[in-house]
Design a protein around this nucleic acid. Structure first.
Length: 542
DNA sequence: AACTACTTCAACCGCACGTAC
DNA sequence: CGTACGTGCGGTTGAAGTAGT
């Protein structure tokens, strides 16, 4: 058992020392005993320690930080030495407040890179990632308090374009970067939809549960990224396949090599961290104020509504907390939305134009109140559906130009839509939205069309057979997925196969990717045949 | 002057990758 | 091939500093 001893240093500062007897436990604290019997000191560095470290680096150079403890009297772990050197002792460090230029650059870099502090630091000579990170975090809080947009109006989307160099340098490192992946993909123009919706959500005073809107929205966002694409029901290729394919993900402007989150991981996360959550369309959405939570948590938020069928969940994260986590360009702030609405939109892209056009368009009129649905601000569902439409259109156009199949966001997007608390949906909106979608020849899952809420919860609670036509292939598909769900158990593979066969329309499937609802009701193509149940990767085939 | 609330930032922590053995 | 180690990164924490009352 480790314990700390507080000592007063030669600087009069108080530091903590890990008692030697805690060496075994020190590993769990990120410290390893180096066998010299020395206790590892923690806390602020003293000038004496600084001197020792500087001296060591002069003699031996940077690196091999764990050797510092061996070769000097410094009782600091290698990590601590490296950090101290990098952040405070190395030459050419620029101290003091950030200049205006630096601040501007940080804002732009963050808009571009997200929370990639180290990468940002490369663009700011003399500044450390820690410094930038601290600056940014305080800036967020400050601007939040002031009700200001995170990104000034002058930061336009065109500023966020990836240069070729950026693109090359931003090959996503995988798995451990999944959180950052999300941030990275936040640069995708399509993901700007997220912002709009978040902004919209922040504007809706009667939206009783704004976090759900964001949650739904985040689902949609996730769906538009390869992040979402990285995890889909079993008809998808194995993570390895995707990774090794090195495929370009059409919704990303950069050439991103993205490893898929392992299903095992998702399964474990979903079942362990949040046993009650499971989803047909899992997406990873993190919100650090609650720790390293993943999709399951977001699903929990969504599920809470479905489960309670209009009743407010007992607990949910605040919207503010969620938006704090949001990366580049993904903060919901009223004033920002106002600006977005009022600022003439530069010709970023068709997608953005359509988004802007939508946002600037008047809300749907003649919304009738239903007994079943309580009041809600107008246009919300339409916005979500419109998002689905836009995404689907964008995806479709991209798919049509890409020889590679991609997992489409539609399922996830509509999932998000489906998960709007019923209390916040007006029947008129739903109908109008469906009509709009129908007019647009957008393929929407029949779950939505039928007003069904096909998603998972605790398996014994969430399913609502009274509203689900179990004979429909999509429902069968969903139910099969539910059956295996996060628990990795296929109860009835035949029903799944049948559902797939129906949904796929008997298309020959040579590609291992699936296009879900890609366009115009075309049957999705996927790896059903090429990737059968028996040769699935572990969880996917369970 | 004393207290409280808030802000800042150095350092810690956990995780993941690459590499050596 | 598996394990241990070294390293880097991003998120979080908590002590010190500052502002407000």
């Amino acid at each position: 058992m480790s314990y700390l001893t507080t000592v007063e240093s030669d600087d009069g500062m108080h530091s903590s020392i890990y008692n030697e007897s805690s060496a075994a436990d020190s590993i769990s604290n990120g410290y390893r005993s180096r066998g010299r019997g020395g206790a590892l000191k923690k806390g602020p560095w003293t000038s004496t320690e600084d001197g020792i470290l500087i001296d060591y680096v002069k003699k031996h150079g940077e690196g091999n930080w764990n050797a510092v403890q061996k070769h000097t009297s410094l009782a600091r772990c290698g990590k601590s030495c490296r950090l101290r050197w990098a952040n405070h002792l190395r030459p050419n460090l620029k101290k003091g407040a950030f200049s205006e230029d630096e601040e501007q650059l940080i804002v732009e870099l963050h808009a571009k890179l997200g929370n990639k502090w180290a990468q940002m630091a490369e663009h700011l000579p003399g500044r450390t990632d820690n410094e930038i990170k601290n600056y940014w975090n305080t800036r967020i809080k400050r601007r939040q308090r002031a009700g200001l947009p995170l990104y000034p109006p002058e930061i336009h989307v065109e500023d966020l374009q990836w240069s070729e160099e950026d693109t090359k340098s931003n090959i996503i490192r995988v798995d451990r970067r999944r959180r950052q992946d999300f941030l990275q993909f936040g640069n995708s123009k399509a993901n700007l939809l997220f912002d709009n919706l978040s902004f919209a959500a922040s504007l809706l005073p009667a939206a009783s549960d704004i976090s759900d809107l964001v949650a739904c929205n985040m689902l949609g966002t996730g769906a538009s990224s390869s992040w979402y694409e990285s995890y889909m029901p079993p008809i998808l290729p194995s993570p390895k396949q995707v990774w090794e394919s090195g495929s370009r993900f059409p919704m990303c402007s950069s050439n991103i090599k993205h490893e898929v989150q392992s299903p095992e991981y998702f399964q474990n996360t979903a079942s362990q961290k949040n046993p009650r959550s499971c989803s047909i369309s899992p997406c990873y959405v993190d919100h650090p104020p609650y720790g390293n939570q993943h999709s399951s948590d977001m699903m929990m938020i969504l599920d809470s509504h479905t489960l309670t069928d209009g009743m407010l969940p007992t607990s949910k994260p605040s919207f503010g907390a969620v938006k704090l986590e949001l990366p580049s360009f993904q903060y919901s702030e009223t004033s920002a939305f106002d600006q977005w609405k009022t600022t003439p939109s530069p010709p970023h892209s068709d997608l953005l134009d359509s988004v802007d056009a939508y946002i600037q368009s008047p809300p749907p009129s003649q919304i009738e109140e239903s007994d079943c649905f309580s009041s809600c601000d107008t246009g919300l569902l339409d916005m979500l559906l419109h998002e689905a439409k836009i995404k689907t259109s964008a995806k479709h156009s991209l798919l049509s130009s890409s020889p590679e199949k991609s997992f489409c966001s539609t399922t996830c997007t509509t999932d998000a839509t489906q998960n709007i608390p019923r209390s916040q949906i007006k029947s008129g909106e739903l109908e109008d939205s469906q009509k709009n979608l129908a007019r647009s020849e957008i393929s929407i899952p029949t779950q939505l069309t039928a007003g069904n809420f096909v998603k998972t919860e605790e398996l014994d609670q969430v399913w609502e057979p009274k509203r689900v036509d179990m004979t429909r292939p999509d429902v069968l598909l969903a139910s099969s997925w539910l059956d295996q769900g996060c628990y990795g158990i296929v109860r009835d593979t035949s029903s799944m196969s049948d559902a797939l066969a129906l949904l796929l329309g008997g298309d020959d499937i040579g590609n291992s990717y699936v296009t879900v609802g890609s366009s115009s009701g075309q049957a999705p193509r996927g790896g059903v045949r090429s990737c059968g149940w028996t040769n699935m990767p572990p969880v996917w085939s369970l």
